[in-house]
Write a protein that binds this DNA or RNA. Structure first.
Lengths: 182, 182
DNA sequence: TGCTAAAACGGAGACAGTCTCCGTATTGTG
DNA sequence: CACAATACGGAGACTGTCTCCGTTTTAGCA
């Protein structure tokens, strides 16, 4: 990658992060280009779609999400608490930019999406937590990690969409009660 | 309401139903106007926002949703089956037009939304089912109907958003297990 | 029936966002 | 330092939203 290209790539990403944080992932891409001091063409050359741009920003938090999963396992807390903590952290991360959660819901089961691979990384993180608890015999038989992932992402997306700023805990408690051994 | 106004109102609604079914609730409103054979101004006078238009279409199914809730209670099935059936019917209805589910999630806790009232009607239907089972002692203590509603709408929205056409049943089973008495 | 005020119509056009195209500028390699 | 190769930028085509206002339709009344 040429030096000027790299420079612009970074500028776009930095400004996208700011704008997406301020106004969500549906903000105008032209404005991001303007703020970054580049032409629209440059933005679209580097990131052909909005999803590609969101995807590039996701890198930061897929790492954190992954680390959080392992940290959760490390706490050795009882199943309920471990899951609640992990789910809350996960949701905190994916709702960082308004609108991101529902994009993740959409990408999760769509291999054609640019975001698919990162969704898999997060899915794997979740699977580690679920598998760990399952191995300990803490879960109901037949709990499917992918399914849990969808459900929790759904909660994130509801919270993100909601006009009121909703406490996700009560919803997560239902989910947790639905998967831990009765 | 003047006769011509009524005529146009109905034409717009009929065509919106078609277009929303074919291409989801984010289709072009101008196209709906065109198909209905009216000017854009006429459409916007009758339905100042997209939500107002969706809301008008919702009337059909809030009725059906309400009836479904009472039918579910009437079956006298065991709690798990009653809830699964009710939730599935509910989701079938609100995912009739692609994109509607997430709009409902957003409107549910936003009294300013034109769709708020109809969300309440559906919320009340859900409450009847939950209250009924609660009175029978079938549910865990402290189950909150509004919270269940959010969760199930979230499942609907995930299913609606998902590229793959997802089976909602496994997700609903987790939710149901999370609310019925252990 | 014919007249008129009130109500409703419609579509041109202002505006905002997406995305492309291509003449121009920048890079780095030989 | 020359010259491909690479990248830039922003004008402008396109699509969708939404408003404004001159024109048409309606309904009530004489």
């Amino acid at each position: 990658m040429r030096a000027d290209a790299r420079r612009n790539y970074d500028k776009i990403l930095a400004n996208a992060r700011i704008v997406f944080t301020e106004r969500g992932t549906d903000s105008s891409l032209d404005e991001i280009a303007k703020r970054a001091g580049v032409g629209a063409g440059t933005l679209y050359r580097h990131f052909p779609t909005r999803e590609a741009l969101v995807d590039a920003l996701m890198q930061d938090w897929t790492d954190r999400v992954s680390a959080d999963a392992d940290a959760a396992i490390g706490t050795g807390l009882p199943a309920r608490e471990m899951l609640l903590g992990w789910f809350e952290h996960f949701i905190d991360h994916i709702t960082l930019h308004r609108g991101a959660a529902s994009k993740i819901c959409a990408a999760m089961d769509d291999p054609a999406s640019p975001m698919y691979r990162k969704c898999r990384v997060m899915g794997d993180a979740n699977r580690r937590v679920i598998d760990h608890l399952d191995a300990e015999g803490e879960l109901r038989p037949g709990v499917d990690a992918a399914n849990v992932m969808r459900l929790v992402s759904g909660v994130a997306s509801v919270a993100d969409t909601s006009h009121a700023d909703l406490d996700v805990r009560p919803m997560l408690e239902v989910v947790v009660d639905g998967i831990v051994r009765a």
